[in-house]
Design a protein around this nucleic acid. Structure first.
Lengths: 157, 157
DNA sequence: GTCGATGCAAAGGCTTTGCACAGCC
DNA sequence: GGCTGTGCAAAGCCTTTGCATCGAC
């Protein structure tokens, strides 16, 4: 589990601004706040729209919930965020950094605790499947549903 | 890709009735209709609640949508149906037969076409991950998002 | 006959959208 | 200054639920 921080060298506003420009769109404080939030909390965090909204409010960064939804969609379509489908807990988003690609999720169905892991064989399996059907691979998502030690113990009562 | 049929020997009503009895619940025509529908259409089909409802209406088997939802949840919790989370197209269900376990889905994000495949390495990857975190493995779900040949060609225009 | 299941319609999450105004470029 | 983005509130979708009635056992 790498705990590397993104070096604070690039405020990423430049990246964001340029990406937006290329699409004829604008850099607004709201969009920056949403992206910055994900950078602040680190790579392994999975937030729902509601949580993003709450956290921004707490740091006195006012963004309406509607705009949070719009920004999450936009940033995902730009490849800066990654949308997750963890069955438990609805739609969530995480930062999509280069050092953090191709990881998968181990989710406790009891308490929601989520661990990440990597395994190149998964991508291989997906690539093989795509190839054998003539599909062009886009993304390979493995969700492992399980019980964490605590919830597994509670279950046995 | 096995295309095996379930032999029509057991109307599965017995299985259903017994499973329900064990939980102090009843075999109703509605529950039977929902399960039978899935058996009729075969193993590889993924239906949403709305589709189940529509198909039952078409064959003049009246079941309210609310009951379809209730039955889908019940049959899933009994292990007779399997709930899928294919990001495209919302919650869907398929028959959970023994010959059909541990398969994964290759989904075209363009048109929704879905192919199934098996690969034991995926389960292995999930088991390894679960073990390394001390989790008890329940289920391993791989979704491969891709473009089918037709949609990939359309994309290049 | 009892108690669980159904149907209907209403309520409930979560997400998107229409519109007037604000503010980025 | 033009035109995109925002905020607000309303609408939309999917799913669940309350309640009276029905029907499996």
């Amino acid at each position: 589990m790498p705990a590397s921080f993104t070096t604070g060298l690039d405020p990423s506003s430049h990246v964001l601004r340029n990406s937006l420009h290329d699409r004829g769109q604008r850099l607004t404080p709201q969009r920056e706040r949403v992206l910055t939030l994900f950078e602040r909390i680190g790579e392994g965090s999975h937030l729902s729209a509601e949580e993003v909204h709450q956290r921004l409010l707490r740091s006195a960064e006012r963004v309406s919930l509607a705009t949070v939804y719009r920004s999450l969609r936009l940033l995902s379509s730009m490849g800066l965020l990654q949308e997750l489908e963890l069955p438990e807990g609805g739609r969530r988003f995480e930062l999509a950094s280069d050092t953090h690609r191709d990881h998968h999720h181990l989710v406790c169905v009891g308490c929601g605790r989520t661990e990440e892991f990597e395994n190149p064989q998964v991508l291989e399996a997906g690539a093989t499947a795509a190839q054998s059907h003539g599909f062009r691979l886009l993304e390979c998502v493995l969700n492992v549903r399980a019980l964490c030690p605590i919830c597994a113990a509670a279950e046995r009562l």
